[in-house]
Design a protein around this nucleic acid. Structure first.
Lengths: 133, 133
DNA sequence: TTGACATATTCCCATATGGGAATGTAATGT
DNA sequence: ACATTACATTCCCATATGGGAATATGTCAA
């Protein structure tokens, strides 16, 4: 089986950079296709096709206005993506804390090096690791 | 040009559902490939290939442990995705507020219907809309 | 109706894909 | 060295893709 269709869900739809640009554009203000074409410097059929994908997954909505068709981002459709990514938040903050703590420990050690108080430590061995990935 | 390569960035990498499952699994606890295969009921080569993609974009990290290779999610790599989606948060809350306000207005109108005080209104016309998308 | 403007769809094609099967490679035990 | 275990990679293939060009559809105006 090939890759999942981009029309299948929000995750696939936003995997395409141009579609992300379109969403960013249309969340501020609804725009006709022609404006999007002009602003993003894309071909009109290309924009229409991207908009089609975005509509199919509910990421944009459209309304007619005379000859124009005005599109705008349906921000709510992005929420599931935000929530999925948010699931990992506690883990990355945890990881960042560990890094911070280690950095602070290093700083303390360095100060000790410059102003040694009592217990001298042996220097870190600095053995280059030869592990293969 | 075809679709962007899945190895190109985090957005493309997480577009694949199986890879999201793998990430969810490996964020809790590092696991060898065989465990992932057993838990997710996928073929081993399939898992290895997904892990390869995830490694290439920095979403997982690996370390050897004897014959096993232990993988774990690098949660930080998901942060950009979270932030991108978060950009739209103010818009979707705004939209939700509008919906809520309209719902409350409807409720108030309905109460008026049941306990009419002074000004009787004409019933809503209920004309079915025939607009094409 | 005809014409012009705006947008959508279709067709073609080069390319990336994910699954399955087969094979390659790495680490350990004997 | 050899067998075994644990992964990784390669090959093949059906399918989805996005871009470009051409064409179709839709809407309004004269």
């Amino acid at each position: 089986m090939p890759r999942a269709a981009t029309t299948s869900d929000v995750f696939n739809a936003v995997a395409e950079p141009r579609r992300r640009e379109i969403l960013t554009l249309l969340v501020v203000k609804e725009l006709p296709v022609g404006e999007i074409v002009a602003i993003l410097r894309l071909d009109q059929p290309s924009v229409s096709k991207h908009l089609r994908v975005l509509r199919d997954v509910g990421l944009v909505q459209a309304r007619r206005n005379g000859r124009h068709k005005l599109y705008r981002t349906n921000a709510q459709a992005i929420q599931p993506l935000h929530e999925w990514a948010g699931t990992f938040e506690r883990y990355w903050t945890h990881q960042l804390n560990r890094i911070k703590e280690r950095a602070e420990a290093t700083m303390r050690a360095r100060e000790e090096d410059q102003n040694p108080r009592n217990s001298p430590r042996n220097p870190s061995p600095r053995i280059p690791s030869k592990e293969k990935q």
